[in-house]
Amino acid sequence: MVEIAHRTSPLEGRGFEGDGISLSVAKPASRLSLRAPEGSLPALSEALGLELPQRPKSTSTKGNRAALWLGPDEWLVIDEDGADLMAICGKIPDLHSAVDTSHRNVAIEVSGARSADVLSAGCPQDLSLARFPVGASSRTVFGKVEIILWRRDEQTFHVECWRSFSAYGFDLLEAAAREAE
């Protein structure tokens, strides 16, 4: 008998719509925690089809794939089409470490005119457009949990967090969204 494991999101059915704020659960995506020295970047960038960014807080995107700079030799690669990123990097002989974190993280989309205000309820970074412009991303904290924050456009933030922290993260976002109404 064949048994199929069904994937359930820890945020199944969650969502919130308020005045100038919308919270929704992002679709499942494939994700890679990638570590590599500078010398391996050309080969990895070519294989992934996008330039791995080397400036702090920066990202690069190509279609539905994005690479977020996390540290001087560390990236989060997200593919919203669910591509097999491990297979892509597995073909590269240059030194690197790639760990599939697709099921470790879940993402919440925070959008609307009040998105930065709502995030500021738990995130101590300056989220003004001058300091956190469109395309910026960073590992940081939200309340008591670590998140990765990525500003996809002026009013849309992508919030990645660990699966087991996501209920707390969503609860705090929703509380902030209601409070700021």
């Binding site: 702090p56 807080k57 540290g71 101590p124 970074q125 940081t140 904290v141």
Partner: peptide, 18 residues
């Protein structure tokens, strides 16, 4: 809250990150 300059991020960041 203290702002601490990270020499790798090349900017001041809030204390709870450190």
């Amino acid at each position: 809250m203290l702002l601490i300059h990270c020499p790798y991020c090349e900017e001041e960041r809030p204390e709870p990150e450190f």
